[in-house]
Amino acid sequence: MGRAASEPPGREITPEGLFVRRREFLKTGARGAATAAVTGASLVWLSGKAPPPDVPETQPALAEPVALGAPAFTVDEPQTPFQAVASYNNYYEFGLDKGDPVRTASTLRPRPWTISVEGDVLKPRTIDIDTLLQWFPLEERVYRMRCVEAWSMVIPWLGFPLSALVDRLEPTGNAKFIEFTTLNDPEQMPGLRIPVLEWPYVEGLRLDEARNPLAFMAAGLYGKMLPNQNGAPLRLVAPWKYGFKGAKSIVKIRFTSTQPRNTWNVAAPNEYGFYANVNPAVDHPRWSQAAERRIGELTRRPTLPFNGYANEVASLYAGMDLRRSF
């Protein structure tokens, strides 16, 4: 600026070589930063996963549960936080990643909802979910949940014993099995457009398994109505079996004389059986079932036979080869 009168001393003039190098330096830096940004963004896009959203606990409360029955109906282990139970879900109807259902299941409409009862019953019929929920007093059951992928949770369910429902639905003498079918509506379940499994999702139990006092129908968890991603409005909970047995968002209950073709067994018969009892001695062909990671814990803990419910259910399988009937 007004320094024209006196020339700056020579040493203050930036030498031309340095000037060129500084420009080159800046350009190099900018290109380096751009390379880093493109590399980093591509790698994160391909390999990274966004944090799961916070799940608001805005579900309506269900009726007050009655007092607990047998000691097997609760677990003296820390319960898995609601946030984890409601954001880490295998529910392929809402996407293949365990983080998908919490983001996509808002399209499910759990009311109004009906369940059709079919097959070997005295009176086939269609029942409204709210009618059904008034048939039985609601109980809380704190159960371990062991996924076939070797992780586990402890979940306080709210619902009623399956045995009570079976009695009420009056199966005929022909009925040997009970089959549950999940909703099959691509409008409400975006994942149904991906044909990874045979839709609709079907699961089943032997009728004596269904009558075991542990078998449970859950309409809620943590005292509230089931979040959609956990299988609203009604799902099966069979805590001595791998989690995939727990059919979610049930629209049909069918009693049959033949063993139901359960979805995972159809998809990979050498990996997933009909019984799917938790069994540390029978590994999945591709990974060990001897130990599991309890969600919230760092290291693995040993898996218990029948998920710790052997006293209650082992007699159901007396004389069976559980290696073959896995």
């Binding site: 930063a33 390379t35 880093a36």
Partner: peptide, 18 residues
Amino acid sequence: TPPDAWLKPGIFVGSLVP
């Protein structure tokens, strides 16, 4: 500066982003 002096450091830094 050698040709593309920015290339290797850029990829190095970017690869540490994940």
